[in-house]
Every structure is written in C-alpha cells, then in structure tokens.
C-alpha cells in the first residue's frame, strides 16, 4: 500500500496509525479504531485543543454578556441573554483619556498606517530581492548581510536613533514616520523572501531578456513581477499581520493619542485605571482588534503557514 515513500504521505493521511508503517512481511495488522494509542493521541490533542481554543471562546462569550451577568456567573458559561451593546460601545464610545469615540478611531489609524506600509514594503522588498538575485554588484551581498543581522538586533537598541532621524526629517509623531519605520523593519524578512524566490527563477529567462535589450526595470515589470504573485501574497500576509499587531513602534513614534494605532488604543482602553471595569466592552474591543489578523489567518490557510515558515528559515 503506502510504501512508495514519504511523497505519498499526504495521500495516506487518512489511513490509520500504523497502516503506512507496517508494510512489513506480514502486511498491516487489522487495526482497532479505539486502540489504546489512538485514545491517547486523540485525547491529548483534544485536551490541548481546548487550551488553545478557550481564550477565543471566552472572548466571544464575554463580549456578548451584560455586566451583571458577568459579575454573577461563570466565565465559561454561554450568555443567557445575548447583547451586542458591548460591541457597539467598544467601537463607538469606549474612552481613552479624554477621547470617548471608541476603538473606531484606532481602527482607522491602523488602516491608514497599514495600507501605505504594506504597499511600500512589498514594492521595495520585491525590487531588493530582484536586484540581489539577478543584478548583484560589488557590495550588494554585504549590504544584505548587514540587513539580515539587523533583523536579530533587539528593536530597543535602534529606537532612539530613529527618533532622531525622524525628528530631523520632520516626521516624528506622524503616521508617515511610523509607515517608514514599518517599511524599514519589515525589509529584512521580505527581502529575504523575494530574494530566495527569485533565485529559483531560471537564469536563461533573465539572459534572454537581456539579449533582447531589456533593462533593469523592463525585466522587472514585464517578466519578474508577473511571475511573483504567490510570493507577493505571502509577503502581504506577513506584513499585514505584523504591522497590524505592532505595539512597540506605535507607542514610540506616535506622539498624540489621536493618532495611536488600534493595539495601543486597545491597551489604553482596557488597562485604564479610572472608572468601572467593563469586562464585556474590553473583550469586545480585544476581539475587534484581533479580528483583522484572524480573518487573514482563517482566509489564507496554507499561505499563512508558508509565510511563517519562510520567516522561520531566515536564521
């Protein structure tokens, strides 16, 4: 049966535990579905899955309850009376300091940061990757190595010099400044991604275009870019989740609470010390902030895994 090796492993996924392993002389044993090892495997996976799924469940359940019910009841109990009031309040009225116009402000700030940052970083990274893999020049590898080492340096080391750079450019505290910071810090991983992807494109293709007289930009736009849609999507996923989830840069480079990205505003709302703690509103706000990356995660499926796997090989 499945002794054609690991390439067929994917096809054999549905087979029971030892089916693929027991292609020995006597053939696979008849297998009991409720064997001890199967119970252990599924039992463990199920319990662990509960631990992982629980917070999402608690977030949803809490955000749909009224405050009295939360105070009385069980954190895991489903809501007796479903109310969407906490969601509305989190979006429109939740207070940070003197502003009481809810998370929507942070949401739109994040969108305004996200879109230019993602477009710019994917554009720059694709050009970088292209130049690094096909137009090597003296020193190009040195710059690339410095960039990759930079990816391991704790951000805190570079925070203040960037404050000075942005201040000199008149961008400190503005959304534009934050966009540039995101582009800079997203550059190592995305450049690596594109560089490795382009390295697998056959050289003949590139040479043929050169012979036909195409230059740097012509080859990039006419040949390379149309081929790089899958890797662009991966880079997009990495950047969108990374930038949306950022807290450190937002809190460092944005000077006015009006312009805080969603994560920073969320933290200010939930961890504010004044007033009654409205747990349902807090959880609705938390869920709202997590919604964008969650939607991307569940919609992109395998591409997300591919993106983080690409991130993982950067070492």
């Amino acid at each position: 049966m499945a002794d054609t090796g690991m390439l067929n492993a994917a096809a054999a996924v549905t087979q029971p535990l030892r089916g693929t392993l027991a292609a020995g002389p006597r053939g696979p044993k008849p297998k009991n579905k409720f064997s001890r090892s199967n119970i252990i495997i599924y039992g463990t996976l199920f319990v662990v899955a509960l631990y992982y799924a629980l917070p999402l469940y608690v977030m949803i359940v809490t955000s749909l309850k009224g405050l009295p019910e939360i105070r009385m009841g069980n954190i895991f109990a489903p809501p007796l009376e479903v109310t969407f009031q906490p969601w509305v309040k989190a979006w429109q009225e939740a207070c940070t300091g003197i502003n009481c116009d809810g998370l929507s402000r942070g949401f739109w700030n994040s969108v305004r940061i996200l879109i230019p940052s993602v477009i710019l970083s994917v554009a720059i990274a694709s050009v970088n990757g292209y130049a690094l893999s096909m137009w090597k020049f003296k020193g190009s590898e040195v710059f690339f190595t410095i960039l990759m080492i930079g990816a391991f340096i704790p951000y805190q080391v570079m925070l203040y010099p960037i404050v000075i750079l942005l201040r000199e450019a008149g961008l400190y505290g503005s959304l534009t400044g934050l966009v540039l910071v995101h582009v800079a810090f997203g550059m190592p991983i995305n450049t690596l991604l594109f560089r490795n992807y382009f390295a697998s494109i056959p050289e003949e293709l590139f040479k043929a275009a050169r012979v036909d007289g195409a230059g740097f930009w012509a080859i990039f736009f006419k040949i390379i870019l149309p081929m790089s849609l899958p890797i662009c999507v991966v880079a997009l996923i990495i950047q969108v989740t990374g930038i949306w989830n950022d807290f450190l840069f937002g809190v460092t480079y944005i000077s006015s609470p009006d312009r805080y990205p969603m994560t920073v505003q969320l933290n200010n709302i939930v961890n504010s010390v004044q007033g009654v703690k409205e747990y349902n509103v807090n959880m609705a706000a938390t869920l709202l902030t997590g919604l964008v990356p969650l939607v991307i995660y569940f919609a992109s499926g395998k591409l997300f895994v591919r993106g983080i796997a690409a991130g993982a090989v950067k070492g």
């Binding site: 899955a49 992982y52 747990y279 959880m283």
Partner: peptide
C-alpha cells in the same frame, strides 16, 4: 487541530495579554 493550535500566533501580544489577564482574573 493545526489551525486551532496556530491561530493564536496570528494575534498580537496585546490581545494575548488582555485575554489571559481576563481569564486569570481572580474574582471572575
């Protein structure tokens, strides 16, 4: 199972911290 184990990775540390702060709340 894989998507259940991996989805927290899509969430920010802020969201993670706030959810667990709530779950570990001693009174509720």
């Amino acid at each position: 199972f894989r998507s259940i184990f991996l989805y927290p990775f899509a969430l920010s540390f802020i969201v993670t911290g706030l959810v667990w702060q709530w779950i570990l709340n001693p009174e509720l």
